[in-house]
Amino acid sequence: MKIKVDQIEFNILIDEKNYKEEKTPIIFLHGFTGCAEDWLFIFDKLPSEYYPIAIDLIGHGLTDSPDDPNYYTCRAIVNQLNYIFESLKIHKLILCGYSMGGRAALSYCLHYPQKIIASIFESTTAGIEDITIKKERVISDFLLAEKIREEGIESFIDYWMNNPLFKTQKEIPEYELIKKKKYKNSVIGLSNLLMGFSTGLMPSYWDKINQLEFPVLLITGSLDEKYTSISKRMKEKLKNAEHKIAESCGHNVHLEKPDVFIKFVLDFLNNKKRKQYELQLD
């Protein structure tokens, strides 16, 4: 399915034939260099009362990659998501995001908390607080954007996947196929995303996440010490959150340990606190 937002065509994975208004939509947002198809593994594992939808974020997959960097800012991405939800007549939803997609999901939740039933943040940060570190991250991401434009997609993906953060993914049997699928992304899309939605440019939400009252599930891998530490801190600040850690797993839990990820999500969806909150929204 395609939806146009400001003349930008977004690719949406959605099973229109089985859609029913009484079902609760769960929106899945992929990480940097990923795509909506990354979430297909969980679509048929969800309870019948839920309805999965996955979106190719701007600059990724089959969604357009416009030249204008203004389409890639945090606020622009939040607006794009909201337009898509309104086009699909979605007024209440569960939002699930991984890494960059988690940052986009968190940003949306803080702008439209009244629309959120619950959220799932996998390997997600609430931003960078220290101004010096923020500036360093912006410079680093701008250099990466330049690297993509100078060397091309394949060279950049090979470099990106050698990041220690993704070391454990190399043990996956389908690793080479996963990497080759990332080659399909565009130079313009990835470079503009780095320049517009860098973690350094994203607002720091650490002093705002305590405003969120809906249930939140935080998921990290035990081998990803950085994001496990971040999620532990987020749990302390959030009003209604739980943190699940996948053992012997790195940054991308849903890719490395899909069965574990599915169990975490299903247990969360069955949680009485979430169901009670949903009833309150009704």
Rank of each mutant, 00 (worst) to 15 (best):
T168N: 11
I188Q: 12
I116P: 01
A54N: 02
Y183A: 10
F214A: 11
E213Q: 04
D67V: 07
F28N: 11
D15E: 14
I14V: 14
T33C: 11
C74M: 09
T228V: 05
K23H: 12
L281N: 08
P47V: 11
D141K: 05
G250R: 04
L13M: 11
S248I: 09
F156L: 06
I153P: 07
I42S: 05
A105T: 11
P164E: 15
W160K: 12
L88K: 03
E86N: 15
K182R: 15
K4Y: 14
I12Q: 10
Y108H: 09
F85G: 09
Y50W: 03
G250K: 04
K135W: 00
V260H: 05
E37C: 06
Y159G: 00
G189P: 02
T125L: 00
W206G: 09
S231W: 00
A241C: 06
L223S: 07
K273H: 15
I12D: 08
W206M: 06
I153C: 06
L177N: 14
G97I: 08
P25T: 14
T199E: 15
K235G: 00
I3H: 08
C74W: 06
E256D: 02
V187S: 02
T220Q: 02
K45T: 03
S231P: 04
I42L: 04
S248E: 15
D56G: 05
H30N: 10
E171V: 03
D38T: 00
L165A: 09
E21G: 01
K170N: 04
D68P: 00
L81G: 05
S198A: 10
E86I: 03
R274N: 15
W39H: 05
K17Y: 04
V78S: 10
L217P: 00
F268Y: 09
K23M: 13
Y19D: 07
F28V: 13
G102M: 08
S87P: 01
L93A: 11
E9N: 11
F264L: 12
F166D: 08
K226T: 15
K179V: 14
N11C: 13
T132Y: 05
A104D: 13
G31V: 04
H30T: 00
Q276L: 15
I131R: 10
I120F: 00
E171I: 03
I128V: 08
L29D: 15
S107N: 14
K208P: 05
N271L: 14
I157T: 04
K2L: 06
Y175S: 03
L212Y: 11
